[in-house]
């Protein structure tokens, strides 16, 4: 675990010391800030709605979630593999898992720094005399970090599959988008087909319940929006995010290991 800490520190340093990190940060914060400001204007100063738009409901939030982790993760494995430093890391006296987890934590920390801008909006509201619901805001912040972690781990997996950083980012963006939109698409497909299927398939109700639970078990947006956003800290939701992230990290470690055989 000491190795994880060392890797984590180095990755954080390099994320915050390269122009790419700051560019991404500025772009994301700017867009999200604009959205927040527009929302604040549109709703005539509805603080809660604006904050939740900035953190969880707004399109910018999910766009950032889809695009940033892939861009961060492409540097973490694919580029290191291309420049050869991965060989250096994987022959250092730390386990593969320590390397991956260190990188994962660093990228997630970057995302946490990014979303902490929304906490600043909260502080500003407090200062202006209309304190937000801090518990809900902090809970949403925690949720945003967990969602980021999930997408970072998914992107790391994509990054471990190839040596070309751009391809890794592309794969990861597709993966994240798919992961986010698939439940929605499946729901609408289900809605279209429900009547037809109900006629033809016996015991459709049970089958549908089964499919629905399957969809729910990958539905990131729903898990985030229904639990963290209103300020409910549910351990089941924690488990949902941690399990998926853990699974992707595990697959990433395996994929690195497999690459040693293939290389």
């Amino acid at each position: 675990m000491k190795g994880t800490w060392v890797i984590f520190r180095r990755e954080c340093a390099s994320l915050f010391w390269t122009p790419l990190g700051w560019l991404l940060l500025v772009a994301a914060v700017l867009l999200n800030g604009l959205l927040y400001w527009a929302q604040l204007n549109q709703t005539g100063g509805n603080v809660t709605a604006s904050l939740s738009a900035a953190m969880g409901w707004g399109i910018v939030f999910w766009m950032v979630m889809i695009f940033l982790p892939p861009l961060l993760a492409m540097r973490l494995l694919a580029e290191e593999s291309r420049t050869g430093t991965l060989e250096y890391l994987l022959t250092a006296p730390v386990s593969d898992a320590a390397v991956i987890v260190g990188k994962f934590l660093a990228a997630t920390t970057f995302m946490a720094v990014l979303w902490s801008s929304v906490l600043l909006y909260g502080l500003q509201l407090q200062w202006l005399g209309s304190p937000p619901d801090w518990a809900a805001l902090l809970c949403a912040y925690l949720g945003a970090i967990l969602v980021s972690g999930l997408f970072v781990s998914l992107s790391l997996l994509a990054s471990s599959l190839t040596q070309a950083p751009l391809l890794a980012a592309f794969l990861a963006i597709i993966g994240c988008t798919g992961w986010l939109l698939l439940p929605m698409l499946m729901q609408s497909a289900l809605a279209q087909l429900r009547d037809i299927l109900a006629q033809w398939v016996g015991g459709w109700d049970r089958a549908e319940a089964w499919i629905q639970s399957g969809i729910r078990s990958i539905d990131v947006a729903m898990h985030f929006q229904q639990s963290f956003l209103p300020g409910v800290l549910d351990s089941a939701e924690l488990v949902f995010f941690l399990t998926w992230s853990g699974l992707f990290l595990f697959l990433t470690i395996r994929s690195l290991e497999a690459r040693r055989w293939r290389v």
């Binding site: 190795g3 180095r10 390099s14 010391w17 050869g84 430093t85 991965l86 250096y88 250092a92 006296p93």
Partner: peptide, 25 residues
């Protein structure tokens, strides 16, 4: 020392060595 001499380009020489030393505990 691999042939390609993989070192982190964005680190200073001293930092690179320190990072390596830390990995070695």
């Amino acid at each position: 020392l691999p042939e390609s001499v993989p070192l982190y380009r964005e680190l200073r020489v001293r930092e690179m060595l320190r990072f390596h030393g830390r990995l070695h505990g």
